[in-house]
Amino acid sequence: MLTSCALQRDRRERNGRILKHVFLIGVSVVMLYPLFWLLASSFKPENEIFGSLTLWPSSFQVENYTKGWTALPMSFTTFYINSAIVTVLSVIGNLISCSFAAYAFSRLQFTGRSFFFALMMMTLMIPYHVVLIPQYVQFLKLGWVDTYLPLVVPRFLASEAFFIFLMVQFFRQLPRELDEAAMIDGCSPFKIYWAIILPLSLPAMGTAAIFSLIWTWEDFLAPLIYLNDIKNYTVPLALRLFLDQEGQSAYGQMFAMSVLSLVPVVIFFVLFQKLIVRGIATSGMK
């Protein structure tokens, strides 16, 4: 009696599980289909891209990639170098300045700390569009337009408050006695930051670095405003150029370059999935 009941429940549970898997796999297919379609189209001959649901290209057009790479007035080599410069500098700036601020907010005592923390949290809400115009006017006066300075310098001033918040969340979990023991061991506040807090916060730093990297890599608005000369363009701006030439219908090449622009992000996602997932779960972000 009892066992048959349990058996029945077992079977019901297993059926439920299978149903769930079927459903989730269905959702996964829908979720991934656009990405695979993009990948497939990047290898297809021009006339096959539209009008068929088949993903497999009849012949692999590697030229989409080779031609696409140089289809624009500048080669993508330039755009990738530009993007890499901006991204690397931004990530470094973010990590240094945000970890400084987070250290101050989470580990140091000073008058006005909670006031400034509240201000910092409020800046999380401010849309970039609101500060954009005065910033643009200012950077223009400084002669910084069409350089990477407007994209990079703010990062060294902890302009992405989100990362401060992420690091504060993490730093706060470290036991306060560690700082105190280090203090008694003769450490200055900077030494504590450098020798105790940072080494113990590598996961948080890693999460911040990855997000900072991906977001800067994908950033469109700021480069759109500050970069005019095509030789300074970052990858997203270059991709947009394809759209402007749409009439010439080089879809295959456009998709090929789109795929390439996503490759770094996907690689980082695959490599650092754990850090990314944990970062979002603990701090809650975009």
Partner: peptide, 12 residues
């Protein structure tokens, strides 16, 4: 020097 209840050894 101070010895803490939680030891406060540097974990890394």
């Amino acid at each position: 020097s101070m010895v803490f209840q939680s030891y406060a050894l540097y974990p890394h």
